[in-house]
Design a protein around this nucleic acid. Sequence first.
DNA 1: CATGAATGAGTCTTCATTCAT
DNA 2: CATGAATGAAGACTCATTCAT
Lengths: 189, 189, 189, 189
Amino acid sequence: MAKAVDRVRRRKDILDAAVRVFARKGFAASRVEDVAAEAGIAKGSVYLYFDSRDALLAGVFESYRARSDAVLATVGEGPALERLARLVGEVVDMLATHRDHARVLLDVWASAPSLDMAAVYRQYREAISALLRQARAEGQLRPDVSEHHATLIVATIEGCLLQWLTDDRVPLTDLAAPIIELTVEGIRA
Amino acid sequence: MAKAVDRVRRRKDILDAAVRVFARKGFAASRVEDVAAEAGIAKGSVYLYFDSRDALLAGVFESYRARSDAVLATVGEGPALERLARLVGEVVDMLATHRDHARVLLDVWASAPSLDMAAVYRQYREAISALLRQARAEGQLRPDVSEHHATLIVATIEGCLLQWLTDDRVPLTDLAAPIIELTVEGIRA
Amino acid sequence: MAKAVDRVRRRKDILDAAVRVFARKGFAASRVEDVAAEAGIAKGSVYLYFDSRDALLAGVFESYRARSDAVLATVGEGPALERLARLVGEVVDMLATHRDHARVLLDVWASAPSLDMAAVYRQYREAISALLRQARAEGQLRPDVSEHHATLIVATIEGCLLQWLTDDRVPLTDLAAPIIELTVEGIRA
Amino acid sequence: MAKAVDRVRRRKDILDAAVRVFARKGFAASRVEDVAAEAGIAKGSVYLYFDSRDALLAGVFESYRARSDAVLATVGEGPALERLARLVGEVVDMLATHRDHARVLLDVWASAPSLDMAAVYRQYREAISALLRQARAEGQLRPDVSEHHATLIVATIEGCLLQWLTDDRVPLTDLAAPIIELTVEGIRA
DNA sequence: CATGAATGAGTCTTCATTCAT
DNA sequence: CATGAATGAAGACTCATTCAT
């Protein structure tokens, strides 16, 4: 039993190390040995937990998806637009809290077509669309809101993330309120 | 004379080939030989026009900047918010027209910290901020518009771009109107 | 512990292989892979012990210097001219015993300005000059011996080496006695 | 006629350029383009006069041989030992006057086994041996002079050349007299 | 399980040589 | 003859992956 737990723990340690290394130098410039060193283990040991270098990136992506799913699962109670506002706030908060993790998404976009970032966005859009439909059913939505509004909400979040990742001076956490104001409060009936 | 023209032309041909190859496989997976083959020349000939593989990516980035600058320079006349709407429309149009080029930006973000994507976004934000200030001076702006609105406009565009690049089903051109509706018309006094 | 020893040993094996290969084909025509094959290892393994192809040549030079220093350190006891004669004999003997090593010096001269052959000759000249000064103090030196005599002694040795290296028929070991006769016995008071 | 003369002249210009370039950077680090630039012509034009890069080195060697032959041919008149002294002096003078040319010999030794430096030395030794035989016939030679003395004379010259080439502080012209004193006057009966 | 030495496939890059203009 | 753009063979070097200890 302890063995299995240790194994899971060690795997997570390596993944955390990979996140730090990939965030620091980019995936393309990161060597398996760099990750091993960051994790405090030998290069060969990485292969006891991951099949390949690409599997490290996949693992990072997967752990991001897990976190992302967790956020989507906690929309809670209340009117749809309030839940939407909370969702947007929590997604932004999650990204701001895990900057390294978010940074690695740049590499997932660029280097790993097999890792389905599109599915992540699709999932966000669907969750948001569901909330928008509920808001409409609740009579809370302005009638002229575009059918593409879910895409715009995801876009605003991801676009702010992008600017924050490439430029320290862009304050992601301060942007949460304006994002909500624009994309959620701004569509209230 | 003719020589100089030919040289410029050949350089551009290689750059165009590089854009296609990088867009197709990603920069990390693209070989110099792939670019040469796409351009219909020998591997070694690439080095007559570019110092290194990285210089190809830098060249692609540079040509993107040039196009981007050209768009920013054509805001035209009229009330500030109209010019802003036109600017957003033209940026989206430019990106939609040059999908391959835009796709390569993903690699610039991820693989080339020396290529200053942050400066591109900063430039967009500044151009938009200037227009927002003018709109305010013209009394066209709702008083509660966030100081971060320029960032949000850039974010919405780039976020839509991102979703379009990763997912064919997201229709970038159809998104231009909703983007403008939300981020420009929505802030009109 | 054992590891460290093995590492030193392996490094030496590669260096020995490099000496053989460089002596056989010349440094310019020697490939890293040739050295690896001669050492019975894979190409990449060479780089575990040497930073670059040039570092192999530097390593060969360094090991020559070490051998050369060892010879200079063993002049022993007795009248200065006897020690000088012994030194000349031992240098010639060392060169004759390690023909491959000596052959590589040709490449050091020609290909590696950063490897300081001049310093080696300077060191020889200084050691010999010291002995000549002692011989003079001992009254063993003919008064008309040139101030450049140390240079001439080094020249005679190296010049014989050169002729031997380029022409098998020149018998280096047989030349030791005549060299000593001419350059050492010939200056005795 | 003029054509042929021009062709010979151009060939010589290239060879002179090659000597300068090879002396400056070593043959291994010298590019055909470097030689062309030094000669003030285009890279491709070198191939109108030389078959290959190696042929440039061969040409330099050949021109050295020609100069060397010229020196050997001018021993002049008089007692054998005087002619020998004159020969040694003129060889040293020739080398000192054409340092670049001499420097390139290092590369010939190291890089071009097909260029027969051994034959050059052999030729020197034979010329010197002939003079020593005459000196003996003239009763001018000490009876105990080694059969290897010709080799030693060549060695002294080449060894001084070597030290001068690798170390500016070694004054080759000043060494002519001591060389003659040691290797020629020192064997007079 | 952990290690890290060894491997060798994979790429970038250089540059001698060719040849169309 | 002269040019210099184009070629592509060759080789240094890297690093993901394996495996004996």
